Structures are given as structure tokens and as C-alpha cells.
Computed example of a mutant assay.
Amino acid sequence: MAGLVVVFDFDKTIIDCDSDNWVVEELGINNLFTQLLHTLPWNSLMDRMMTELHNRGKTIEDIEECLKKVPLHPSIASSIESAHAFGCDLRVVSDANVCFIETILKHHGILDCFSEINTNPSLIDEQGRLRILPYHDFNTSSHGCKICPPNMCKGLVMEKIRASVSADGKKQLVYVGDGAPDFCAGLKLEGGDVLMPRKDFPICDLISTNPLLTKAKIHEWSDWEELGANILSTVNRSFIRDESSSNVKTDQLVPVDCKYQNGSISATAHGALHLPVSPPH
């Protein structure tokens, strides 16, 4: 088993949209969502939206069918499958939730490629309603990070991942993400690690504002063809130490855009409300 661990954010990284926004828009509760947007933390708001869907007669099956419509670019799917086939340890760190992530990954046939999904818990209660809970119970105590939302600090999650993979003898971490909390996760990477930020997204703004804080090598990406090439190049360098094998030739592709990425609620994606320029330490 190789020593490479690749950790992915989910929304706007594996998929080109926010899965929460997708469900809100597709199932017609955008108006209520917008009304309540600034009254609740995002995670609590999504739990409230699941109650609204239940009250309108929507079932967990309706939600799952909606999620199965989320597009997945073939380049990211194939790079995930290839990295898994090479023996890489693939994981997810996301502020979405278990139900949404597992439904989408399973539908596209890549759920089994991931050894671990770190995200907000979800469950179906006695009434058949989907409940979305916080990863970190901020009602009892704060995680203390000024970059991340109250329900999940990705930096703390990455500290746990590093501790676990170090115990297993694995050496190199790769982190792929787009948002401000992904910057927090990237701060936990070391000199031999790789950070893959999505170009022109909040993570790149924070890296530029705080250039001395990131120790890892930085490989930016703009679309999924480029991201796939970056991932496979890193895998090649890690496993066979042959620089020539990393010269992946790709034709430019337009990524599959999420239908609602530029919609009325997308500007308030999870991390976008928390954009300080100082690290959480």
C-alpha cells in the first residue's frame, strides 16, 4: 500500500456546485431558504430546510432522486478511480452531510474509492424526516477557529487525519478544495505535502493574502481536466518517481457547470461567510 493520502473537499471540488443549494433549488424551497439565510448558521438552516421538505410531503427518496441529478465531470471520476487503483488512500472532508455525499458518490459508482468521509452527520428520524446535524456540537463548545463555520473546523479534521495516517506509516498528504475552510485545512499540510486550490475561489484569495502561512507545494486548478491531470501527476511522482510520466497531455474541456452555481443563493456558500485573513492558531 502506497503512502499517498488524497483528501478532497466535496462541494465545488468533486462536484461543480453546492449540494445544499442544489437540493434547495431543485425542490422549490429557495424563497424560505433566502428568508432564513441570515437568521441561522448554515448547517442549522439546512436541517430546517429538511423539515420544510418533510412538511411539504417530500420523502427521503425524493431527495435522493434530486441528488442523483448532480453532474460529475468524467475527468474527476476517472482520476479518483485511477488514484484508488494505484492504492492511494482517498478521503473526503466536507461541510455537506453524509446523506448528500454518499448518495451522489454511490450514484456515480465511486463511493467505494473512499476510505473515510468526514462531514456533518445525517439520519432519518421516526417521522421519516432527514435530519442534518453538526460535525462539531457548537451548542456545547466552540472549536475556536475564526476561519471555519461553527459546525466544522476542517483544520481540526486534518489534524486527526494526519495523526491517523502517520500511525499507519503513510507520509504524503494531498488536499484539494475551493473555500476558506479548505485554506484552514491546507494550513495543516507540511513541506512535503501538496495543496490543490481551485483558482479564483476563496482559498486562492486567502493563500495570496497570507503567502507565508502555507508550507505545502501549491498546484492550482481551474477545471476538472486540469485537476485530474494534477492528481495523476502527483500519484506518478509518488509511486514511480518518474518525472516524465507526469507529463499528462490533455485537451481543454469546458467543465460541467452546476445549473445553480450562479443562482440567487450561491454567493452565500458555507465558507463564504467566514473570510478572515488570520490563521486559526
Rank of each mutant, 00 (worst) to 15 (best):
L4F: 02
D9P: 02
D20N: 11
N21S: 10
W22I: 03
E25A: 09
E26Q: 14
E26D: 11
I29V: 15
N31G: 05
Q35A: 14
L37Y: 12
P41T: 12
S44L: 08
M49G: 04
E52A: 07
I63S: 05
E65K: 13
K68R: 15
S75H: 11
A77G: 01
S78A: 14
S79A: 15
I80D: 00
E81C: 01
F86H: 12
F86I: 05
C88A: 15
R91A: 07
A96I: 01
I101D: 02
G109M: 04
I110Y: 08
F114I: 04
F114V: 07
E116H: 10
S122Q: 05
D125V: 07
E126V: 04
E126P: 00
Q127I: 00
Q127P: 03
R129I: 10
R129L: 09
L133R: 07
L133G: 03
H136F: 14
H136P: 00
D137T: 02
T140M: 11
T140Y: 07
G144M: 10
I147R: 02
K154L: 09
G155D: 09
L156E: 08
M158T: 07
E159V: 07
S166H: 11
Q172H: 13
L173S: 11
V174P: 03
Y175A: 12
G179S: 15
A180R: 02
P181R: 01
L187S: 03
L189I: 05
F201K: 15
I203Y: 00
L206A: 08
L206H: 02
I207G: 07
L213F: 06
K217Y: 10
A229F: 09
L232Q: 12
N236F: 12
S244Y: 12
S245T: 15
N247F: 15
V248F: 14
T250N: 11
T250C: 05
D251C: 13
Q252I: 13
Q252D: 14
K259R: 15
K259N: 11
Q261T: 06
Q261I: 08
T268L: 03
H270D: 04
H274Q: 10
